[in-house]
């Protein structure tokens, strides 16, 4: 890691005056330090926002408001994240390791860079780093994208929290010291076609100051599942978050979100269309899961992920609805 200076603002307003000189915002720092240790980036200054208590809260009233610096461990343990909000706690509890969850923050998780092994290694100057080759495309792509992978970069976005929050129509408040803007989480992420070198719309002089979920989601049912090769600390092959608004047995409204499927966390509108206004049965859940994979275009080594997604979407729908997925037959 190269040397850097360290700014320690005590308030949000103070943060912005330090965001110069090749500065990077640091919260938990897990993702940042990993890349700095790899010499992938060498900021001249880190602006530590962890000292700002005002950025760290879980407020449950009319909707849910989360401070960006709340840790994954705090989310996982929070007694406020029940009902529809449970999907957030489940995603947080399943991420990384206990040691990392104690430090890693919500906004840090949302903004972390991809885990693609080519992107992460100093040995590869890939398209996302400004190079002209996506090494995964014809290389070792078993963990890469099965959807939206035709734009020069085939990463999957690694944020578990994004997968969960997208199912709740989360909104992000972004400030730059002068203005504040609100961005739907769905619009927060950028595809490689939009910008191959960035995953989010967040600018270098901006800070996430709140993540919120609208009160209209209250009363929905939700669930989150991930499938990993290894059960202790592993990145998922597939992640699914589901939020259901039920009207008796009928699905009134629904969100089906896929993580580890595409370069951005994505809602599967194909699946949602199948489900909406229909009576939720095991068969319907299967159909929706199959439909969700209609636009999958796997790479040379990751075709198996399609099957896994079909399973995980089906199971997560069942779990969210309180149905036993294994009661539905193969």
């Amino acid at each position: 890691m190269r040397k850097f200076e360290y700014a320690m603002p005590r308030s949000v307003d103070e943060v912005f005056q330090y965001l110069e000189n090749n500065a990077a915002v640091k919260a938990g720092g897990i993702d940042l330090l990993d890349r700095m240790k790899e010499y992938e980036i060498s900021p001249g200054r880190l602006v530590n926002i962890n000292g700002i208590e005002a950025l760290r809260y879980i407020k449950n009233g009319n909707g849910l408001r989360l401070g960006p610096s709340v840790t994954l461990a705090e989310l996982a343990a929070s007694k406020k994240l029940t009902g529809a909000w449970r999907v957030i706690a489940l995603a947080a509890a399943g991420a990384a390791t206990p040691q990392i969850r104690n430090i890693a923050t919500l906004a840090g998780n949302l903004c972390q860079r991809p885990r693609c092994w080519y992107f992460r290694s100093a040995d590869f100057h890939c398209t996302r780093k400004g190079g002209d080759t996506c090494f995964a495309l014809d290389g070792e792509n078993q963990y890469h994208a099965i959807i939206g992978n035709s734009d020069g970069c085939v990463i999957v976005h690694p944020s578990a929290m994004a997968t969960a929050l997208l199912a709740l129509d989360a909104v992000i408040v972004i400030e730059n010291g002068k203005d504040s803007r609100t961005v739907a989480l769905a619009d927060f992420y950028m595809t490689p076609a939009q910008d191959i070198q960035r995953e989010t719309v967040l600018q270098a002089d901006e800070l996430i100051t709140e993540i919120s979920v609208p009160g209209t989601m209250q009363g929905w049912k939700s669930h989150y599942n991930k499938l990993k090769e290894k059960q202790a600390f592993d990145w998922p092959l597939a992640e699914v978050a589901v939020a259901l608004q039920m009207d008796g047995k009928r699905v009134k409204d629904v969100r089906v979100v896929l993580g580890a499927a595409a370069p951005v966390p994505m809602r599967s509108e194909l699946a949602e269309m199948v489900l909406k206004n229909s009576v939720l049965t095991h068969e319907l859940a299967r159909t929706a899961a199959g439909e969700a994979m209609e636009n999958a275009e796997p790479l040379s080594e990751n075709g198996y992920k399609v099957r896994i997604f079909k399973t995980m979407i089906y199971r997560t729908l069942c779990h969210a609805a309180g149905m036993d997925p294994f009661a539905g037959g193969v």
């Binding site: 200054r45 962890n50 000292g51 208590e53």
Partner: peptide, 19 residues
């Protein structure tokens, strides 16, 4: 929320620590 890593520990008052 119980505090960890607030970064406001026993440090000098300057808000920027040089490299």
């Amino acid at each position: 929320l119980k505090g960890t890593l607030r970064g406001t520990g026993l440090l000098p008052e300057e808000r920027i620590v040089p490299a």
